[in-house]
Amino acid sequence: MFDKRFSAGYLANHMARLFFHALQRNIAALDLAPAQFMTLLELWEEDGLTQAELVERLDVEQATMANTLKRMERDGLIERKPHPVDRRSRKNCLTERGRNLQKPATEAATSVNEIALQGLNPWERTALIELMRNTISNLQKAERF
Rank of each mutant, 00 (worst) to 15 (best):
F2R: 09
D3L: 11
K4Y: 03
K4L: 07
R5C: 03
R5E: 12
F6Y: 14
A8L: 13
G9R: 10
G9S: 15
A12N: 04
A12P: 01
A12T: 12
A12G: 02
H14A: 09
M15T: 15
M15I: 14
M15R: 15
A16D: 12
R17Q: 14
L18S: 12
A22S: 14
A22E: 15
L23M: 05
L23W: 00
L23A: 03
Q24Y: 14
R25I: 14
R25G: 11
N26E: 15
A29T: 12
L32R: 01
P34D: 15
A35R: 09
L40Y: 02
L41K: 06
E42N: 13
E42Y: 02
L43D: 08
W44T: 08
W44H: 06
E45Q: 14
E45P: 00
E45D: 12
D47L: 02
D47A: 15
L49H: 05
T50Q: 14
Q51P: 02
L54H: 09
L54D: 01
D59S: 13
V60R: 15
V60P: 00
E61Y: 06
E61S: 10
Q62G: 04
A63H: 07
M65G: 02
A66Y: 08
A66R: 15
N67F: 06
T68Q: 01
K70L: 07
K70V: 14
R71F: 11
R71C: 03
R71M: 04
M72Q: 05
R74S: 05
D75S: 06
G76K: 06
L77I: 11
L77R: 05
I78E: 07
I78R: 01
E79P: 02
E79A: 04
R80S: 13
K81Y: 02
K81A: 10
P82Q: 08
P82S: 12
H83Y: 07
H83M: 00
D86S: 11
D86P: 03
D86K: 10
R87I: 07
R88G: 12
S89W: 07
S89N: 00
K91E: 07
K91V: 09
K91H: 02
N92I: 07
C93V: 14
L94Y: 02
E96L: 06
R97D: 08
G98V: 09
G98Q: 01
R99K: 09
N100V: 00
L101G: 06
L101N: 04
K103M: 09
T106P: 03
E107C: 00
E107M: 13
A108T: 03
T110Y: 12
N113S: 10
N113K: 08
N113E: 03
E114H: 03
I115N: 00
G119E: 09
L120K: 12
L120C: 11
N121H: 07
P122D: 13
P122N: 14
W123R: 10
W123H: 10
E124H: 00
E124T: 02
E124S: 05
E124V: 03
T126N: 07
A127T: 10
L128A: 08
L128Y: 06
E130Y: 05
E130W: 10
E130A: 09
R133I: 10
I136N: 06
S137C: 10
S137P: 01
L139R: 13
L139A: 09
Q140W: 05
K141C: 01
K141Y: 06
A142T: 01
R144D: 08
F145R: 12
